[in-house]
């Protein structure tokens, strides 16, 4: 009897300990994020005191400064364009390829699958320098032959690079899903006289909707948040910038100018879209990852 009592109180102590540890971890994540939101409403003079004091008022001017003065509004538009273009291209290219690789037998299928699989091990940032040089050489050639360059400092090309380098992960994830479907779907469609393309677009793709949403989510986050490729390929001083690169410049400028309020407003502007998206689709995101099992 006594034994049981001690184990039960030990049990309670153990659970209390677990809750405290979990709560501490949650706080260590939530507080810094919330702090940035709070700081984005502070006036510059408020940054020289205790960091835990609430802002004196809602100083919206920070957001105006960030949006117009620091051009975050323009960068936001650029980011939207690049992300949307890259996602559209990725879907158009990756969906048919993944479908064929997982559902058809043909010569060279194995080679292609191995190649795309190997692509999973190549990180974009390992190869960013050759990509940059290749595009610059291409630009120099274009300039000498046609008189104008096209490849660097171009949002469209940035989107192409994003889409191309996201292919291995996306095809891997989609093929995994397509492979689980029964072949009866296609056979039934063929008997009804549907061609290959019709079958693929009208029958198979609608069934793959959950996987498609998952790859859109994951790739949206990686395109929206990416900054190394964007910084490298959009390096000329007057070229368009994406949001994270603009923010990085703002953060570096802030070190000398000490425009804290504007900087934190910029931080909020970059993370707000992803946070809103996350709140809407968190279930899909935290469950979808079990499909791929790896990170791009």
């Amino acid at each position: 009897m006594k034994q049981e009592k001690t184990t039960r109180s030990g049990e309670r102590l153990y659970m209390a300990f677990i809750y405290i540890v979990l709560a501490l971890l949650a706080i260590s994540i939530l507080v810094p994020v919330a702090w940035v939101f709070m700081a984005s409403f502070k006036q510059n003079s408020e940054f020289y005191g205790n960091p835990w004091v609430l802002p004196a008022g809602l100083y919206w001017q920070n957001f105006v400064d960030a949006w117009n003065g620091a051009k975050m509004g323009e960068y936001m538009l650029n980011s939207v364009i690049v992300t949307a273009l890259a996602l559209a291209m990725l879907l158009v290219v990756a969906l048919p390829a993944a479908y064929c690789l997982s559902r058809f037998k043909f010569v060279g299928r194995k080679v292609l699958r191995v190649l795309f699989m190997a692509g999973l091990f190549i990180n974009v940032n390992y190869i960013v320098v050759p990509i940059f040089l290749m595009l610059r050489d291409g630009d120099n050639w274009l300039k000498s032959t046609f008189g104008s360059s096209f490849l660097l400092n171009n949002l469209f090309m940035l989107a192409v690079v994003y889409a191309a380098t996201a292919l291995p992960f996306t095809i891997h994830l989609l093929s995994g899903y397509f492979a689980t479907l029964a072949h009866d779907y296609e056979e039934a469609a063929y008997i009804d006289g549907a061609g290959y393309a019709t079958t693929m677009i009208r029958i198979i793709f609608p069934m793959a909707k959950p996987s498609i949403i998952t790859i859109i989510l994951f790739n949206f986050l990686s395109f929206w948040n990416e900054y190394i490729i964007s910084m490298t390929l959009m390096s000329s001083t007057n070229s368009a910038r994406t949001l994270p690169v603009g923010l990085l410049n703002l953060m570096q400028a802030q070190q000398s100018a000490a425009q804290y309020g504007t900087m934190y407003a910029g931080l909020v502007l970059v993370m707000l879209p992803t946070l809103i998206l996350y709140i809407c689709v968190q279930k899909q995101l935290t469950q979808g990852m079990t499909v791929g099992g790896l990170k791009g």
């Binding site: 940035v36 953060m251 900087m263 995101l285």
Partner: peptide, 28 residues
């Protein structure tokens, strides 16, 4: 839901958050 949040933030944002944490004067 909370533990997953850092994964959706850009590394640039995280480095901004951490410079506020690590700031020598008046840092968190």
């Amino acid at each position: 839901i909370v533990f997953y949040i850092p994964n959706i933030l850009s590394v640039v944002v995280i480095s901004g958050i951490f410079s506020a944490i690590y700031k020598p004067e008046n840092g968190m």
